[in-house]
């Protein structure tokens, strides 16, 4: 079976600073992958290279059997790659419902499924209720708490009906039960067939969610495998968790 996402020898520099070096990574359809690493290890840069916010200088990114290195970010989204941002980036002048409506209008419709205005609204409402924001559908993002912002961010990524969802630290700052909520949400999404890359610092969440764990340190991949084994890896312990 071919991989859904295949990153091959990816390299990215910012001036003289090597942000990513020779990263190879593949994800099968339906997989649950955890991506961890200390701050500044290149996790977000990797996500940005995969999603098209940044262009990789070396190596290649293939998605669903197609090279996507030269595609603009929105084209990658159309192919089925969705992400949430580390710091929530809602559309501040649009209501929550309209925030969710954007990917429906621009991504789902670009794939050829036309919906009536009513069904788009119904679908947006459904997505909002999945993250528990249905009561705030007509509010603006500025009326939300930080936690709700993160939920909105996830709901908007889900609205694009992705094949692969990259959740970039979507649980930072959340309470125990809120982390559980989001994990449940992600697992449910995964059960519907969506592959998920979870980037997270909350180890409890990562360990319970991931079926495979990848560790980045200083722009290099130092481990990739079954989570418990990876955590026992002496190099990971040394580099990531400290001596």
């Amino acid at each position: 079976m071919s991989d859904l996402l295949a990153v091959d020898n990816l390299g990215k520099r910012f001036g003289g600073f090597v942000a990513l070096e020779d990263i190879s990574l593949s994800i099968a359809a339906g997989e649950r992958l955890g991506l961890i690493g200390p701050n500044g290890s290149g996790k977000s840069t990797l996500v940005n290279c995969i999603c098209g916010t940044l262009r990789n200088e070396r190596g290649s990114v293939r998605f669903a059997g197609q090279a996507i290195d030269r595609l603009a970010a929105h084209q990658r989204t159309h192919l089925g790659l969705a992400r949430s941002f580390q710091l929530p980036r809602p559309f501040v002048s649009l209501t929550l419902l309209d925030n969710i409506r954007i990917p429906l209008l621009y991504t789902v419709e670009a794939r050829g499924t036309r919906h009536s205005a009513q069904s788009v609204v119904a679908r947006s409402e459904q997505l909002l209720s999945e993250v528990g924001l249905q009561d705030k559908a007509h509010k603006l993002p500025r009326d939300l708490t930080q936690v709700e912002m993160r939920k909105l961010e996830l709901a908007r990524a889900m609205a694009a009906e992705p094949k692969l969802l990259i959740a970039d630290e979507s649980m930072a700052g959340l309470t125990h039960s809120e982390v559980e909520d989001i994990l449940t949400l992600l697992v449910r999404l995964n059960e519907q067939g969506v592959s998920i890359i979870l980037i997270e610092h909350i180890m409890r969440a990562v360990m319970s969610f991931s079926r495979r764990l990848v560790v980045l340190v200083s722009g290099r991949k130092i481990a990739d495998g079954e989570p418990n084994e990876v955590m026992r890896d002496p190099e990971v312990e040394r580099a990531y968790l400290g001596q």
């Binding site: 929105h74 989204t77 980036r89 501040v92 002048s93 954007i102 991504t107 990524a157």
Partner: peptide, 15 residues
Amino acid sequence: TIRDDELAAEASGVP
């Protein structure tokens, strides 16, 4: 969406 946040717009599939 472009006025609000171009990166997020691209990520939502807006050309």
